[in-house]
Simulated scan of single mutants.
Amino acid sequence: MSTADVRPYATPTTQTMTQGDTGNDAERALRIELAGVYRVFAMLGWTELIYNHITTRIPGAHTHFLINPFGLHYTEVTASNLVKVDVEGNVVGASSYPVNPAGLVVHAAIHRALPDAHCVMHTHTTAGLAVACSQVGLETTNFYSAQLQGMVAYHEFEGVTVHADEGPRVVADLGDKRLMILRNHGLLSIGSTIAVAFVRLWTLNRACEVQLATAALGAPRRIPDDVAARSTRDALQFDPRHGAGADVLRALLRQVDRIDPSYKE
């Protein structure tokens, strides 16, 4: 992707993937998992009409990733209608759907720059956006924020993310962190797996929800730095030795299956 503004919609290339073809078995499995996570977000109320994005990089020689079709609600996303794009914003193969350029700028920059960025999630939840709009940002005042000490980066608001030159600045502001509060905008999570990205985002969003509720009571109690540091070390949900969120995500996907398994189509 050049430093020029992104094109209005990603456009198909001449590569040989026909509509409805979902690639090899590994890609098919990723498509099913990612489509299921879109339904999980919908179940949790983490939707913003047809906006926001969850992307997953497809392993291989080329940096290709899957993104939701622009114009569909998360409850309409399926394994087969996810759009495969490259980091220049081109659709790989064919799709009946366009891609939101606001999703390409940040997600493409992260997938291009960070080898461990298998999955990138971005939300505009009320609690997350409220904390992003506050001067203080995330406060270490509750059980969940105490597990995120030193894990959250910040990026200043630059407007709607349709200008490609913002992408590298997001990456630079991330540094070695894999959670970000986009000032005045929302939350961002990155993971080496979909499950890791999810459990990180869930913890950050939950911290924001509790912070927002606490603010209504006034005078929140700050957790001492040493206690927060210990809590962060003891937070097992991020640790691969303890599933790194996979068990949580499987449980939520089972709920989605009971509601509507059509995401697998």
Rank of each mutant, 00 (worst) to 15 (best):
T141W: 11
Y97L: 13
S95Q: 03
E88Q: 14
H73E: 06
V105H: 02
S145W: 02
V106S: 03
V136S: 14
V136N: 09
E76D: 15
Q135C: 10
T18F: 14
V99N: 03
T75I: 12
W46S: 02
L82N: 01
P69R: 09
E27N: 10
A29R: 14
V136W: 06
N68E: 10
V136M: 11
L148V: 06
A102D: 03
V120T: 03
Y74T: 05
G89K: 00
F70L: 13
D21W: 10
R31Q: 12
G60M: 05
G20S: 07
V77R: 01
C119G: 04
V91T: 06
S145K: 01
V136P: 05
S134E: 13
H62T: 15
N142Q: 01
D25C: 08
N142S: 04
H73W: 08
A113C: 15
L148S: 02
R28L: 07
G60C: 06
A26L: 14
H73T: 10
V131T: 01
N52F: 14
V87S: 00
V85T: 10
T123W: 02
W46H: 05
T47Q: 10
P69C: 09
V99W: 03
L82R: 01
G103M: 03
E48V: 06
G60P: 02
F70P: 06
Y38D: 07
V87H: 01
A61M: 07
L72Q: 14
R28D: 04
I110L: 11
D21H: 10
Q19R: 11
L104A: 05
T11W: 09
A109V: 12
L129S: 07
A109M: 15
A109L: 14
V87C: 08
T63I: 15
T56H: 08
A127K: 12
I54Y: 08
Y38P: 03
N142F: 01
Y38M: 12
G137N: 08
P98D: 09
M121W: 04
T140P: 06
P12S: 03
Q147M: 13
I58L: 07
G128M: 09
T18P: 07
P12V: 04
V131F: 00
T141A: 11
R31C: 06
P101D: 04
L34F: 02
Y74F: 15
V87E: 03
G137V: 07
M17W: 09
V131Y: 00
A117W: 02
L66G: 03
T123L: 04
L44T: 08
T47D: 13
H107S: 11
V87Y: 01
A61T: 09
L72H: 13
V37M: 09
T141N: 13
F70M: 11
V37D: 00
E33S: 08
Y144T: 00
E139Y: 13
I50N: 08
F70S: 10
R28F: 06
T16H: 15
A29T: 12
